[in-house]
């Protein structure tokens, strides 16, 4: 692929990521699906979200390799999972788990769900 073509392709992926983040008030980029996570960190993050009792959207990055390769640079966050609430990056597994344990996560998730 020429530089122009690969740049256009990357811009298209970024546009997709942007609309996913904008359209879904609670969005998790993860490995696998909530029913069948493919990584312990993704699984633990899903457990925290499910415990908050609200529906959430997810993107399986293992079946979307172009998102997997583009999102870390776009978000300035090198690893997965990545949780977005109301368009904002909250963090990965460690941050989500710590917020869940401290009681911060549930009101954040409930608030996003009510506004979405």
């Amino acid at each position: 692929m020429s530089d122009d073509a690969s740049q256009a392709a990357e811009e298209e992926v970024i546009a997709t990521i942007r609309s996913q983040i904008e359209d879904n008030p609670i969005l998790l980029y993860m490995k696998g699906s909530p029913a069948a996570p493919q990584c312990g960190f993704s699984a633990q993050t899903v457990q925290c979200l499910i415990a908050c009792g609200e529906r959430f959207a997810y993107v399986d990055i293992l079946s979307n390799p172009e998102i997997r390769s583009t999102l870390p640079g776009y978000a300035n966050w090198p690893t997965f999972p990545q949780l977005y609430v109301n368009g904002e990056l909250i963090g990965g597994c460690d941050i989500v788990t710590e917020m869940f344990e401290s009681g911060e996560l549930e009101p954040l998730i409930k608030g996003a769900s009510a506004s979405g």
Binding site: K31, P37, Q38, C39, G40, S42, A43, L62, T97, E98
Partner: peptide, 14 residues
């Protein structure tokens, strides 16, 4: 500090 969750073998399936 918390321990890491167990691996679910993502790499191989991937």
């Amino acid at each position: 500090a918390p321990m890491s969750p167990p691996c679910l073998g993502g790499k191989a399936r991937e």
